[in-house]
Design a protein around this nucleic acid. Sequence first.
DNA 1: CAGTGGTCTAGACCACTTC
DNA 2: AAGTGGTCTAGACCACTGC
Lengths: 245, 245
Amino acid sequence: MPETTAPSATFSPLYQQIKALLLNSLQSGEWQPGDPIPSEMELAARYEVSQGTVRKAVDELATENLLIRQQGKGTFVASHHSEAWQYRFFSLMPDSGKKAPLKSHFLSCNQSKAAAKIAALLKLTASDSVIQIDRLQSVAGQVTVFEQIWLPQQRFNGMTLEHLESWPGPLYAFYESEFATHMVRAEEKIKAIAAEATIAKHLKLEPGSPLLLVERISYTYGNKPVEIRRAHYNTQQQHYENKLN
Amino acid sequence: MPETTAPSATFSPLYQQIKALLLNSLQSGEWQPGDPIPSEMELAARYEVSQGTVRKAVDELATENLLIRQQGKGTFVASHHSEAWQYRFFSLMPDSGKKAPLKSHFLSCNQSKAAAKIAALLKLTASDSVIQIDRLQSVAGQVTVFEQIWLPQQRFNGMTLEHLESWPGPLYAFYESEFATHMVRAEEKIKAIAAEATIAKHLKLEPGSPLLLVERISYTYGNKPVEIRRAHYNTQQQHYENKLN
DNA sequence: CAGTGGTCTAGACCACTTC
DNA sequence: AAGTGGTCTAGACCACTGC
């Protein structure tokens, strides 16, 4: 007499296994950001499954924004270099509606032992080093953002202030090209706080002015946290936009 | 010799047409929130397409959170009454991590002509009336939210303060049961502001304290805006949480 | 015209729920 | 055992891109 309650606690459909294999190829760098992955027919042959099964695996990775499908052309590894991704994770919009471009001004880029809080968030040990970047961002000539960024030193080894200042595009494109680190998702915690003196000075505001504090953890492939941000937004002319579905 | 560039600007796949039909049935109230919709086989027969085509249409509505699939049981119309949806659209979390339940205290519920701004957001004309609700919300005995809500009078006809006070659950469940209005999605704009005197008093804070201002537009079926909220959050013990994918 | 992703079908079988 | 959603296949055809 067989068991009455089937085990099956570990049932995993084929397409999920294919998805895991595709993820491996992305994580290992077999396919680089911006590059096309093999066609569905080729993948089906490689993994010895039907095209429909590959399709479902790719579909999920596409809705997770790891892959980009383009009918007639192919399926591509998502990249922060593409036009459409410039504002990937950037939710601040002008109240007026017209987007003005952002301008970065880097203040510093230093290396040190990780503070306990930062080490915990990045899942580092107390002996590991981190790189800290401070910068300002301006919208339409107005200083709007003061931002502190922490990165694991090991992954971003060799980053310097000069290096940052000579990079023309967004930071995430910089990480991708120069440090082979592509960001996949992020989590943010938001508060309203009163500006401290030093930050108020940077943003040309009175101390005590209300600021939006945005703390972000960004993850690369495999749910690995690789960047901490602590940003202060002046939201007098801007607002943080969010869609709830 | 046929045209070189095919027209086809209006090509719409079958499953999209099925999706539109399903949406009609939801919007018309043929299937009520919480109820099961017909099985995939029945729908396939009704629309004279294959099960796979129905499936793809239902899949999209499920990922848009309009339908809920449950293997072995059926597919159900999403409802704000279900446990899992209590915190639909509510992004405020205690810093400590443990969720405490919310308690509502309604201050007023009045009817008046719509102000120009509100009328525009709700897509009403200047002669239309709106209902305005003011309320406070407390977390763990602490007054945390002051909220103003505007609703089109026509759709929410007959709402009173007593009515609101006697309702035990979340507002969106109230709208759903009492006014046949199910919310499908929402958009929020967030700023940090200094508390005005009257609001500070409600939240038991000093005037000028930093508050999170959250302005929300909620939509029902057919992208129809039917609720405006203007909420002030005290984020000393709480934060607004957001996941970027 | 060939190659890519996108749609649609029909049928078989699996996993889960309910009776 | 019957009914539901979930997976997988094989094959045909469509829409779009680029050569």
